[in-house]
Design a binder for these strands. Structure first.
Lengths: 262, 262
DNA sequence: CGAGAATTGTACGAAATCGCTCACAACAAA
DNA sequence: TTTGTTGTGAGCGATTTCGTACAATTCTCG
């Protein structure tokens, strides 16, 4: 695997921060920073992508929308990634919705500009390919997890995944929304969340969930959180400086994991 | 999307059949055809890939293996695809197992040879990218399905997916194995399978499941089967001639589907 | 302040699924 | 043929989750 050294600049998105100075300048020239409000839909299934999105904070969620309108999350995207991998594959529409899960700010680039950059720069393609693989691994694991783990475990996993992607311990989320993400009823989320609260791992009130005990949450979640974190730290090994100064994410959980070879 | 015309040759794998004559000759020169017996493990999680595999019949299954040894399927690969997408992304190991789900024959190419071909031939990369996107879509949908649909629906979906990938109506599968794929107990499979049998959609005995009524099975499955088929027919639109002469797969179900734009 | 909306708590029976166990049939190898 | 293995059927209580409904609380906006 090619080692990519992130330029030391004040860029909140990992992928962008990992670009060379020259390429970063080109990307910046065609990118636009816009706010991403809670629940805004960035990508509509089956419609041509207009932009690719690089979160600088907050996070996005890729969800499958069923015919009856219900939806289930496929994967989560934050500062470590981007929405629009399909463009790398030369495809301009996807069967999934992209929705803002935690409000924040995103950099966006039009499809046309991004295609041009991709065509021109092997460095960008190489980086995107790494991310593409990380994404595949995340989606595969999350899907397996959906099949076999309890709502409470998946809830803990989901909170951890999201916590890794925001800057504070407070996640602005309703239980209703969490239910949509996990593909379960809100009432099931209430049960799971109150169990986690009773255990002192989180606290919440009216659309605000606070992570109190990360290590405890990791213990309460299934192994899938660790597996998903590991996928990213393995494929995108270099962290920007600023991430290390935040809550002890990764310090406690992500490092030094290996596969169970079996 | 670039249109790729499959050469008219006797090649059972869609991806290979879609190559130009020159490239196909190069691929053939470095590939080796080997039998793939039931339950053989082709790829071990966390270990460097030795080969990429193109099924010519039968099918492979990518599964997540949990710490306790249980496993859940992430996706299925047959004549339409290949195992080893990660190499396109420059990654030589994956967190998932690849196991033979239905015995058959595969063409394999060493990682080294395949890397060399990839580096040399944009045509191969373009085709692989299409497949990579189809794979992502399949995995995402399957994972969502795991979260919200019943064992019986998922069982029907799984049988259809597999049926699409083999040449006969008889699937050599035990309920035990099916349980592993779906991530449920064998007893749950027995219940689901006997319901499908009672409805006259399938019949089975001792490791042999026969599809009797495809249309009925499609009705019994969730919408996810259609969604997954559609992903392939959209991204890999050109079918080899020989597939059309088999059971009425695709004729009844795959064609003329569109997204629910929402 | 008051009305309405949004969010959460809780309860209930129904259904699905689990974990486990035993029984039996079919097949394979000795 | 005998014996051991594999695959399937079935039953049982326990547990999870569902679907639904309603009440209580908190927030927002007029």
């Amino acid at each position: 695997m090619k080692s990519i050294a992130p330029a030391q600049r004040n860029e909140k998105n990992w992928l962008l921060s990992a670009l060379s100075d020259e390429l970063y300048a080109l990307v910046t020239a065609v990118s636009e920073t816009v706010p991403a409000p809670y629940k805004e839909i960035l990508v509509v299934p089956g419609r041509p992508l207009e932009y690719v999105y690089f979160p600088l904070g907050g996070c996005l969620s890729i969800v499958t929308v069923m015919k009856d309108g219900s939806s289930v999350e496929v994967g989560t995207i934050g500062w470590e990634g981007m929405c629009g991998v399909s463009l790398l594959n030369g495809i301009d529409q996807v069967p999934t919705r992209c929705i803002i899960q935690v409000e924040g700010v995103v950099k966006r680039i039009t499809r046309k500009d991004f295609d041009a950059l991709l065509a021109e720069h092997g460095e960008l393609r190489a980086l995107m390919r790494l991310y593409s693989q990380a994404w595949i691994d995340q989606v595969g694991r999350a899907g397996s997890c959906n099949g076999v783990h309890s709502v409470e475990q998946r809830c803990a996993r989901w909170l951890l995944i999201t916590h890794d992607r925001v800057e504070t311990n407070e996640l602005p989320l309703t239980q209703e929304f969490l239910g949509v993400m996990l593909g379960v009823r809100r009432a099931s989320v209430t049960v799971a969340a109150s169990a986690l609260q009773r255990a002192g791992l989180i606290s919440y009130k009216r659309g605000k969930i606070t992570v109190l005990d990360r290590a405890g949450l990791e213990a309460a979640s299934c192994e899938c959180y660790a597996a998903m974190s590991e996928a990213y730290s393995r494929l995108l090994p270099i962290e920007p400086e600023w991430i290390k100064t935040r809550h002890d994410v990764h310090a406690s959980s992500v490092r030094n994991r290996t596969y169970a070879v079996a």
